[in-house]
């Protein structure tokens, strides 16, 4: 410190202080360059992932062309591959998951923001968020060893007897009591995405200005009416964003689905039959792929999954940001 104060007097010549200034400036430039390249690295990681999978899947795309998307073939012996069965399985299981998870998450968010007494809110919210922290392989094991037997023994026969007889709709609910299948996978996925969606909904519900809600209460609204007519319209875009976020993780979830889906390459209307999803196909078969075209087809599947989840997640971010921006304007 003493050296720097004495150096201040003759700063005009090539003094230690001046040298230190240039050194600091150079160090600042270097520091800025390091952190900026780390930031660019994040951009490159995503771009690299997309391009490398497009590159890895080029053989499948060029061999099968557009037919890759519409073919149900999955024949490792004759080297014929099509993505329709895994795509169908991915969409159906994610749809089942959303049908269950969205209303339940809404209920949980409503309970945690409007209904529950204050002392209960923190613990219940923390417990639901614990669900999000459990690794997906645990869900998969639990699904296979605990939930699948329950589905096979009780739920599937019941569905066969009751819903299976309805004309038209019944085809969805007829099948052998295997326990594994699309419906089981959809339910396990629903359990996994509930914490994601409900925590987003809870957070945005809390941003609704108190005076809006109080005005509605003052006019004699019930809690349900306040939530339905004030809270939901106010938070609509963020709620949709949260749902999309859940959808994105349901589409790409691998381990939980792999355990309970059954790895069967067949297209069936029944939800009680085993099927396959993109992620489960890759997880099950990638290390067994013995030909280049087989491996390339699996990477091409990965590319499709990546593109779909990218757009779903981008949509989610866009909706959430719209809400945040509207917030900021007030």
């Amino acid at each position: 410190m003493a050296a720097s104060s004495s150096a201040l007097s003759n700063a005009t010549i090539d003094s230690p202080a001046q040298r230190r200034n240039t050194r600091d400036a150079r160090a600042d430039g270097l520091f800025r360059w390091i952190v900026a390249s780390a930031g660019l690295f994040v951009l490159l990681a995503l771009l690299g992932a997309a391009l490398s999978m497009l590159w890895g899947g080029r053989e499948a795309f060029s061999t099968f062309g557009f037919g890759f998307l519409t073919s149900t073939d999955w024949d490792a012996v004759n080297h014929k591959f099509g993505a329709l069965v895994p795509i169908y399985g991915t969409l159906v299981t994610a749809l089942i998951a959303m049908l269950i998870a969205v209303p339940v998450s809404f209920g949980i968010a409503l309970f945690l923001t409007e209904v529950a007494p204050n002392w209960l809110r923190g613990p219940v919210a923390a417990a639901i968020e614990l669900l999000a922290g459990i690794p997906s392989i645990i869900y998969g094991m639990w699904g296979l060893f605990v939930f699948v037997p329950v589905m096979g023994e009780y739920v599937t026969p019941w569905l066969n007897d009751h819903l299976g007889k309805i004309p038209g709709l019944g085809a969805l609910f007829t099948g052998p009591p295997l326990g594994i299948g699309m419906l089981t996978a959809g339910i396990v996925l629903a359990i996994m995405v509930i914490p994601f969606i409900s925590s987003v909904m809870r957070e945005v519900f809390l941003t609704v200005p108190m005076r809006l809600k109080e005005s509605a209460y003052a006019l004699g609204s019930t809690t349900t009416e306040v939530v339905w007519d004030i809270v939901l319209p106010y938070t609509r875009s963020a709620v949709i964003g949260g749902v999309f976020l859940g959808l994105g993780s349901a589409l790409g979830e691998t381990m939980a689905v792999t355990f309970v889906l059954g790895n069967a390459h067949q297209l069936t209307a029944s939800l009680l039959m085993p099927g396959n999803s993109i992620a489960a196909t890759i997880a099950n078969e990638f290390t067994e792929a013995d030909s280049d075209i087989y491996r390339s087809s699996l990477i091409a599947l990965g590319f499709l999954l990546f593109v779909v989840t990218f757009f779903v997640l981008a949509g989610a971010k866009w909706m959430l940001r719209r809400m945040a921006r509207a917030e900021g304007e007030k």
Binding site: A49, G252, A279, G302, A314
Partner: peptide, 12 residues
């Protein structure tokens, strides 16, 4: 996006 991208895709 990277935060919620499917982890299997990163493996690929």
């Amino acid at each position: 996006i990277l935060l919620s991208a499917p982890s299997i895709v990163l493996g690929l």
